[in-house]
């Protein structure tokens, strides 16, 4: 092999770069956080599977309906009616932002802008 003094470091850099996820986790891997589900309530506005994948779409849709179309009633896939409101419908059961919302959002790194305007009850208490 020619130019081994350059080729071998090159190969090492190549391997390190493409196996980076293994090294980045090494020694600092944290357990996967579990979002804390509401204790009393078993049923959300839509099915669990739908909510897991599409909740941000639903919330975006709710925002459009409430703010732009002045509609405050959501009829789900089973025909049940819910009031369109993050604070009064969603947060009624999912009342802990840190233990529910943030756990997943911080885990998968998303940057939702819900909390630019909305706030939870605990946060409101701090200000009072």
């Amino acid at each position: 092999m020619y130019n081994a003094n350059k080729v071998i470091p090159g190969i090492i850099i190549f391997i390190l770069f493409f196996t980076a996820p293994i090294w980045l986790n090494f020694g600092r891997l944290e357990a996967i956080p579990q979002p804390e589900l509401p204790k009393g309530e078993k049923k959300c506005v839509e099915s669990k599977e739908y909510m897991r994948a599409y909740h941000m779409k639903l919330l975006d849709d709710w925002r459009k309906k409430a703010i732009r179309e002045n509609q405050y009633i959501y009829i789900n896939s089973k025909g049940e009616k819910y009031r369109i409101s993050l604070q009064k419908t969603c947060l009624k059961c999912h009342n802990n932002r840190e233990k529910f919302c943030d756990r997943c959002h911080n885990f998968v790194i998303t940057h939702p802008d819900c909390w630019h305007c909305h706030f939870t009850k605990e946060e409101a208490k701090k200000w009072q």
């Binding site: 996820p21 980045l24 986790n25 885990f107 998968v108 790194i109």
Partner: peptide, 14 residues
């Protein structure tokens, strides 16, 4: 995509 392969995700990737 490292955000899906590391936990915690490095600040720079965030």
């Amino acid at each position: 995509h490292l955000r899906l392969f590391t936990n915690p995700v490095p600040e720079i990737i965030q």
